[in-house]
């Protein structure tokens, strides 16, 4: 059960708290940007998160395919690309929930 207060990494907690504040205020693009920035931070800290982390294998959770693409790169870290600059509130919430769960599962 992921909540911002459960994220220990100060920088990542700040991003996810900001993502929540933004979606609550209907600043949806900003919210998605903050959530994605937190996810990038997770991948920097744990480069094998997607391949061997707690959401790999039987517990795999799929990155939301809602205007932001997670593209795998040969041998390197996956690239995260914004495909548009407009997001709805449900989309912002979806990214927030996904990234929050990932951060808590990664014990960051």
């Amino acid at each position: 059960m992921a909540k911002p207060s459960q994220v220990q990494d100060e920088e990542l907690r700040g991003l996810i708290v900001a993502a929540r504040a933004a979606y609550l205020d209907d600043r949806n693009l900003e919210s998605v940007e903050k959530s994605v920035a937190a996810f990038r931070g997770l991948l920097q800290r744990q480069p094998d998160f997607l391949s061997a982390g707690p959401f790999a294998g039987n517990n795999r959770r799929v990155f939301p395919q809602l205007g932001v693409a997670l593209k795998s790169a040969n041998g390197g870290q996956p690239e995260i690309v914004f495909e548009r600059q407009q997001f709805s509130n449900p989309e912002a919430i979806t990214f927030y929930e996904y990234v929050s769960d990932c951060l808590v599962a990664a014990k960051l």
């Binding site: 809602l66 205007g67 495909e83």
Partner: peptide, 10 residues
């Protein structure tokens, strides 16, 4: 597919 959640909500 990338817009279906927006469509659903609206």
């Amino acid at each position: 597919r990338g817009f279906k959640k927006q469509m659903w909500e609206e």
